[in-house]
Design a protein around this nucleic acid. Structure first.
Lengths: 337, 337
DNA sequence: ATTCATAAAGACAACGTTGTCTTATTTTTA
DNA sequence: TAAAAATAAGACAACGTTGTCTTTATGAAT
């Protein structure tokens, strides 16, 4: 049925090793033989069996991607990794990972032990499981984190500058005249959330605006959290004139809540988010947000993984890209009081 | 370094074949030996090398998924497939596929020829490339299409009933008093688009409402297409009171356009879509839509693939699930004239 | 007690590659 | 011109499993 290296060797009247040399572009083959072999390959439509190659080289030529659930951020990451793998000769193995769940850990263990992947990339929030980096470190499996929720100096990662991004956006709001600015925070046990929160606080402090605790609300960075936090914020005696959600998902919840309450955005309240999900530009009046440069981040992460896969040391093990503002219709001047 | 079947055999003082028997739960091993082998496996932490197994069994234990780009619909599909694979012992290989592109075809060819996947699932619009089903058919590789754009009776697929869904939604709009209903169509060369369009037309005819050609606009089923088509529709001398977009993406474009024009939804114009993307419930005032039961569809598709993978014939090769209406705030009665 | 069936376990060859070593052949160098 | 070096190509083992066949031990039936 399937055509193997032996068939090619027989047709080209040479040894299988010679065919192997031609296939892999190795030296020690004369031009004449090379042509004959190539002709045989073309005639038979031969493709090397990658499984056999994997076995003998003890490499899988696969990159594993761990993700928790296929949300918007994840699908962006995936899209980019797929594009990169499409160019390269690596395949992508996708696996669900629930941090700290025993079954997830077990599946990961087999993935690593059996060398089904040569290297691994994680998307948030998979990185929060400490078991992961331990396992990969011990197995000496290259591993890069994309936008980790927590930063571990021992693990290579690529992410955006959350602190700087949040600072920038807060500053912009202040410049536009806002000073009652609510911040919808994420889980306080994640470095990423903390950074965004601190960026917000730092900007307020720079401009001598007191940080008010009731303006800092927990949103879990999801739609419902953003919705609820917004309703609470707007119920305050002195309601904010701007709501800065630490994630776009939460910002969309905020937008929904405000519209439901009949508040005009941005005329009565300004709203902004963080992440720049593709959807943010498609919801009226366009969500102003901080762009987390996913393409850049993923590109770099894959590049780093490939470097490690090639057996080289990383010149830089942690990369943090600056964020830029992406201003759209949801932010305007505060209403005149 | 890595522990192989030989190490286990040595420790358990038996042949490698016996270990193999224990690992695979085969007969012809005494209880005593079985225990000894199991103990050795546990002590050494042995896991069988799947690559070797793949080579000898000529199976990859992998399911391939082809997708064009990681959009919302795709990420939903993926999420579900991942969940299923998480339970099973199949891995997921993800690959980008651009219909009719030579490089895509070449990559797919190698995927199949080298048996890197045992079976394949496609998400739209990958199925439109006829090369795909030819290749898979000739290679005798099991293949199931998820929501194909075109239906090929020779290929197993699972999808939603587009005609019935569109009929249902149109009927609902009519019941609410609408009769000037615009339809934002997708590419006319796809069965899926045609079905949705015909469902719309059929409902109008049932209720003796003349089908007006200027109410049928092309939207390509994406945001920009929906946006543009909506602006055109609203510029008509007799503007529609309801806009039925053949996809949620287009419906979001419609919503955006209407808000930009200062039209109130649903007070002045009703809007509805098709697909029930997760985002549709999160955009104000909640997009009414036709639910394409993705979970059901994907679940069935994977089940069918597994049946074929097990070497069994499919009892039913094509499955079409009915769609249900998911009514939210974007649809209301037409304004009184 | 002898044969026959059955169960348990091992030997060995696949699977389709690549790596190592060896052997011819050609080319260069002293 | 002989020796050394480089090139071309093949033989064969290895990678870690599973499938096939054979051998040995055990128990049942004649």
């Amino acid at each position: 049925m399937t055509v193997t290296i032996k068939d090619v060797a027989k047709l080209a009247e040479c040894s299988i090793k010679t065919v192997s040399r031609v296939v892999n572009g190795e030296p020690h083959v004369s031009d004449l033989t090379r042509e004959k072999v190539q002709a045989a390959i073309d005639t038979l439509g031969y493709t090397p069996n990658i499984t056999a190659r994997r076995l003998v080289q003890r490499k899988s030529f696969m990159i594993g991607i761990l993700m928790h659930a296929a949300g918007y951020y994840q699908s962006e990451v995936l899209s980019r990794v797929m594009d990169m793998a499409y160019q390269l000769d690596y395949d992508i193995l996708l696996q669900t990972y629930y941090p700290s769940h025993e079954r997830s850990r077990e599946k990961l263990r087999s993935l690593i032990n059996e060398k089904r992947v040569d290297g691994l990339v994680t998307t948030p929030p998979c990185d929060v499981d400490p078991y992961l980096s331990d396992l990969l470190f011990n197995a000496d499996t290259p591993y890069v984190q994309i936008s980790p929720l927590n930063r571990d100096p021992a693990v290579p990662y690529v992410t955006g500058d959350d602190y700087q991004g949040a600072y920038l956006m807060t500053e912009r709001l202040i410049m536009m005249g806002h000073w009652r600015i609510a911040f919808l925070s994420g889980p306080r046990n994640h470095r990423m959330s903390i950074d965004r929160l601190f960026g917000y606080k730092a900007a307020l402090e720079t401009y001598r605006i007191p940080v008010q605790d009731e303006f800092i609300l927990d949103s879990l960075y999801n739609f419902d959290g953003g919705y609820n936090a917004t309703r609470m914020a707007m119920a305050l005696a002195e309601a904010p004139t701007a709501i800065f959600a630490g994630s776009d998902e939460a910002a969309l919840g905020a937008l929904f809540a405000l519209r439901e309450m009949g508040m005009a955005v941005p005329q009565q309240v300004s709203v902004c988010g963080f992440d720049n999900l593709p959807h943010s530009s498609r919801v009226w009046p366009g969500l102003s947000t901080v762009n987390h440069p996913i393409d850049q981040i993923v590109g770099k992460a894959v590049e780093m993984l490939l470097t490690m896969l090639a057996g080289n040391e990383l010149p830089v093990r942690q990369v943090v890209y600056p964020c830029q503002l992406e201003m759209r219709g949801s932010v305007g001047a505060p209403p005149v009081a």
